[in-house]
Nucleic acid binder design. Structure first.
Lengths: 112, 112
DNA sequence: GCCATATTCAACCTACAAGTTGATTAACCG
DNA sequence: CGGTTAATCAACTTGTAGGTTGAATATGGC
């Protein structure tokens, strides 16, 4: 699977996005990460593996703990990809701006 | 499925991203979209349905054709979500602001 | 009305994603 | 050493994603 697909696919799960949000607050062990979720530890472990394969997290080793930390590089790649489409919503925004400007002119301008 | 998951999931397929890239060049019918791909028309039709459910495209009706057009709004939402993580790569790549501004200015079409 | 074209619907196959439970590995602690 | 805790591995189930082929629907041209 290509890299971008891997990352998008990893992000397509709300549990995994929640894990990333948790890691944005700092490193955490598997048990700490799993604590808020109503699923088994093993399921969380699998999610972490998916995130790791996508390059979104990396893990250290400290005694029997495997602390996870966020790795945002793939998110930057996604941002780059999306940036290529920015004009398609910017454009509308600009058009709206132009439209509003036009409305305003029409209102303030005396009739012809 | 929540909206963001739906969009990420839709983007997690290279064929679908290629379809978006094609539509970035302008509206197209199903046959026109399907032409470059080595898969059946029906498979492409399914991809289009996925993109439509995610809000990434919308379709008109002209005679027996169903012209598809890009709808970038969900991409903006993804960009917003990712923006919340920008600080995690900004610190490492401090020239990124300039880089993004450059991308934004760039009018070349997106590629897959 | 009939035929060709564009697209979708339906049934089916295969692979894999996400969850489960139970067993296993690895490190620390008394 | 034996027990406890952290995490992973393995096997299994279930649902769904992405592909196929074949039939059905809708529209325009003659």
């Amino acid at each position: 699977m290509d890299r971008l697909s891997e990352v998008f696919s990893a992000l397509a799960d709300p549990t995994r996005r929640a894990i990333l949000a948790r890691l944005a607050e700092g490193e955490a062990t598997v048990n700490q990460i799993a604590e808020p979720f109503p699923i088994s530890l093993q399921a969380v472990s699998k999610h972490l593996k998916v995130l790791e394969r996508a390059g979104l997290i990396s893990r250290g080793r400290e005694a029997q703990w495997r602390p996870c930390r966020l790795d945002a590089e793939p998110l930057r790649e996604v941002a780059d990809w999306i940036a290529g489409y920015q004009r398609f919503w910017k454009q509308r925004y600009d058009q709206l701006g132009e439209y509003l400007r036009q409305l305003q002119k029409d209102e303030t301008r005396p009739e012809e």
